[in-house]
Amino acid sequence: MKKKAIKVIVSAVIVILALYGLQRLLMPKYMSGVVEGAMIAEYYDEEKDHDVIFIGDCELYENFSPQVLWDEYGINSYIRGSAQQLIWQSYYLLEETLSYEKPDVVVFNVLSMQYNEPQRETYNRMTLDGMKWSMSKVNSIKASMTEEEEFLDYVFPILRYHSRWNQLTDEDFKYFLNRDKVTFNGYYMRVDVKAAENVPEGRPLSDYEFGENAYNYLDKIRELCEKEGVELVLVKAPSLYPYWYDEWDKQIEEYAGEYNLKYYNFLEEIDEIGLDFTTDTYDSGLHLNLSGAEKMSRYFGKILTEDCGLKSRRGEEDLEKSWDEKREAYNAEIKRQQENIEKEKTEE
């Protein structure tokens, strides 16, 4: 009997370890090319004592640099951003984040209000796979799943990625156990330049009204912040595309007015920020590059300090030390990217 029990236990351990190992191997590592899938998980390694938490899509993680906020205002911030982060994903990420820490300010980018229902599985994965298991993750999965998706595929990602066995690369083995960081406190850095030319006008929509579901989650974000005593700041980042309609802007203004929230549409403050879309974007105006993001962050840091009353935390020894290390990595990445650009230019 004892022998049989040992046999069963040993077999079970082998099965679990083997399947877990296979699963880890088969899951995309997002270490090159599309790195957005690696962003969400990076937060868990952080010391969770932030003054500001950003939640939202690429308009946050490519347009705001927490390093600048620290260097110039002493604000300790983190961006919990992911590609095409839908508003319910933002809500559950916020819920999860607030279970770890209580920032003074939460900044939410309102572009995702345009989506009222689940969109694409690929983007869902990039937001959800990196989250640690909690009720927030469970609810976020349930809210995000498209019709083709199955909850079980999130519980056991091997069922989703099983067919990657013939697409495995060196990267999958190299990052089997640990992955590199791809962001700087959630900021995804790009130093290259691609000027914005001929930015298309938004095509007319049949209905400009934000959906009920989107409003519902905006309410939830607001209520959660109220409950936790965190100030919610709504922003529209200065990305020229996807197009931000006046009708959408008006709805957000009304909402902010109704609930006494701060709302900044930075598209209307491009000159004040000092953005030049011939030099401050790397993809023709969709996202800012390092130069643009740093300008944006300087401008926003002033708002956080003056309008939201955030105090500088420079001088806190541990924080200083941590940000010094981050600055080193930040500068090294700038150098690496600049060298690559130079190298490419030379090759051309």
């Binding site: 046999k7 082998i14 099965v15 083997a18 399947l19 083709e148 069922l159 989703r160 099983h162 066995w165």
Partner: peptide
Amino acid sequence: PYPVRFAVWFGLFVIVILLGTYGIGYN
């Protein structure tokens, strides 16, 4: 012997999991 049995059936299970045409993209 048990190790052989285990290897055969667990091997088949892994083959089905990895090579099976199921899930997104397959249905």
